[in-house]
Design a protein around this nucleic acid. Structure first.
Lengths: 220, 220
DNA sequence: ACCTGAACACCGTTCAAGT
DNA sequence: ACCTGAACACCGTTCAAGT
């Protein structure tokens, strides 16, 4: 929580920024398994500089995750200002799911292992406070049932995001229906919305046939 | 799909079995990041033997996953034989969530990346057929709403399992409520059940205070 | 045919040498 | 103070030598 007191030299400060930005972009594009060397290269610094700023790759991940959580908090606060609290919560879940498709392992990379990091923990607690306020406002409006809490909602959002990330190439309609199902679970019967589309065929989880699966990928 | 025609020598067959069993146990206990050397050691063979039976670690994971899917199919078929189809589906989801807590990255490790493996794909298709039959029977009974499909249900189960896996040390009540929320989403209003317990406090996602978080884990 | 462990390649991390 | 790249450690994978 307390601010870092010591000043960084100008070039060091710039390198640190570049590293976080490079890491964010690389994690988005290639997932967390991207090598530290490639991140350092993209940031235009040596590998040693990366480890001077972040004691380990895991710390770099943590810095990026904290940054993502802060963006989520911003979105949550904006939703709090919206007139229709129920609609605002629905939209927030919708957009979170949309981002999960692009962001790969970023916002999703929150689990109790990473929450052991105090900075992530603090940011996450702030996010939960915001979500809690949103849920309560939606409950006051009668859009969300009164017997659920922010933890229930967060877990459902996280679940949908991770399930969709595993099936990144599946029919996009599957994602829309997951949103609708989450809403069916947490909304009051008055605020219920119909599920969009029909039940997806069993093939909806397969890769799109347009994208030929590389044959060398696995087994044979 | 076609059977492996060539016979393995008796000792080779035994080694292959031992490797799958050792891998299953090690993956359960330590997750997929366990080293191949430790798996080979537990199986009582050299590392080279592991790679003679499985071209890569990923293939070994695939073999274990196929095995797990077959067990899921067995559970699904048993559920099909139960008198009350709605209750049977509810119980199956319940037990799947329970297993997810113990199994770490096994049954959960199904995504479109791994479905590129033809053996996993075939086993998964069989699982989907079974789940599809279960859902239809529950719909005929009026327990499950008519506008959802097996893909919707599978995605929700997978989501809950992965979300719970991320928060392995959180309050177990969170898991029970996730099951109830899934059921609220997919059931007809007649078959609805109340959510067990009350809304979890925001601290429910933190580690239990009894288990002291190792301070050296991350940042400081 | 199959088994084995030494050797190789790759990637996260450290550190002595530079500025 | 900070930067850098060579060097180290670790782990997945290969392969020459054994049985």
């Amino acid at each position: 929580m307390e601010e870092e007191p010591r000043r960084l030299r100008a070039d060091a400060e710039r390198n640190r920024r570049r590293l976080i930005e490079a890491a964010t972009a690389m994690f988005c594009e290639h997932g967390l398994e991207i090598g530290v060397g490639e991140i350092a290269q993209r940031a235009g610094v040596g590998r040693g500089t990366l480890f001077r700023n972040f004691p380990s790759k895991e710390h770099l991940v943590a810095a990026v995750v904290v940054d993502r959580i802060h963006r989520s908090i911003d979105r949550g606060r904006a939703a709090l200002a919206a007139p229709d609290a129920g609609q605002a919560l629905y939209d927030l879940i919708d957009r979170s799911i949309g981002w999960a498709r692009d962001d790969r392992a970023l916002f999703d990379a929150i689990g109790d292992k990473r929450l052991a990091n105090p900075e992530i923990h603090a940011a996450h607690a702030e996010l939960m406070d915001t979500l809690d306020a949103l849920v309560r406002r939606a409950q006051d409006r009668g859009a969300v049932r009164s017997d659920i809490g922010a933890v229930d909602v967060l877990m459902m959002i996280k679940g949908v995001c991770e399930a969709l990330r595993s099936f990144q190439h599946c029919d996009p309609e599957v994602g829309k229906r997951q949103l609708d199902l989450v809403w069916a679970a947490i909304s009051t019967s008055e605020a219920r919305r119909p599920l969009r589309g029909g039940p997806p065929p069993l093939s909806a989880l397969d890769r799109e046939p347009t994208e030929a699966a590389d044959p060398g990928a696995l087994s044979g």
